[in-house]
């Protein structure tokens, strides 16, 4: 414990910088994936295509080991944080896509009929009925993606992205410093949990209060 304490008190600034890098790399990847996967998921759900090509590609991407994905991306895109952001982006596609699809297809069709009867346009229905009702499932997908992304970013240290993986590697190179390895690991776990809680808040904010309407 004393080693850990000493390490923290001496290097807190460095640890903060690495945490910030780690956080940003994970977040950017997932956000980019949201930009692609949510619209794509909506589209697929409207077309009722559960086994589309894009879903299949996202599925296969998921089976590639992180270290291999990073190595291949490194060869094409070079070193640094951008490569890790691309990896996070690719890994985040499936969970977000799958949940968006599931969330939207789960919306009660009766509700859509009612909305249409009220004279809503297609776009209105999407933004006022479908998305609010499926948002919690979609955010569930984003949560899964972020936990994975935080983990991938640790491995990203091998392609020079920085982040908490640097601290773990430092701990590995030090003498009798399992604590420092833990410091990096706990930092990453803490970040994943924190982001999970944060997204929980976002979810609450975006979910309509009277969600149970659908049971009429």
């Amino acid at each position: 414990m004393t080693v850990l304490f000493q390490y923290f008190s001496e290097n807190w600034r460095y640890i903060l910088i690495q945490s910030r890098t780690h956080f940003l790399i994970s977040l950017y990847g997932v956000l980019l994936a949201c930009l692609v996967a949510i619209p794509l998921g909506i589209l697929l759900a409207y077309k009722k295509k559960s086994n589309s090509l894009s879903m299949m590609i996202a599925n296969i991407l998921q089976t590639i080991p992180s270290i291999a994905m990073l190595s291949v991306l490194m060869i094409f895109f070079g070193l640094g944080s951008n490569t890790v952001i691309i990896a996070n982006f690719l890994y985040s596609l499936l969970p977000i896509l799958k949940n968006t699809y599931a969330g939207i297809t789960n919306v009660d069709p009766k509700l859509l009929d009612v909305a249409e009867g009220l004279g809503m346009t297609r776009i209105q229905r999407l933004f006022k009925v479908v998305l609010p009702l499926s948002i919690s499932i979609i955010i569930g997908g984003i949560k899964n993606a972020i936990v994975v992304a935080v983990g991938i970013t640790t491995v990203g240290t091998f392609v020079g992205s920085g982040g908490l993986g640097d601290i773990i590697t430092r701990g590995i190179n030090m003498v009798d410093a399992g604590e420092v390895v833990w410091a990096g690991a706990i930092g990453a776990a803490f970040m994943a949990v924190l982001l999970d809680i944060l997204l929980g808040f976002v979810e609450k904010k975006l979910t309509p209060k009277q969600k149970r309407v659908s049971s009429f």
Binding site: R20, T21, L24, I25, Y28, L32, L35, V36, P39, L40, L43, Y46, K47, F77, G80, S81, N82, I85, I86, F89, G162
Partner: peptide, 30 residues
């Protein structure tokens, strides 16, 4: 839908281009 699909593909490509071609790093990263 076809139009939408094309948009999707465009967004995807844009992402990748944005990420790699430009020298601009993401804000906050080296």
């Amino acid at each position: 839908n076809k139009k939408k699909l094309i948009y999707m593909v465009l967004i995807f490509c844009l992402n990748i281009i944005l990420l790699t071609s430009c020298s601009c790093a993401f804000p906050g990263l080296g």
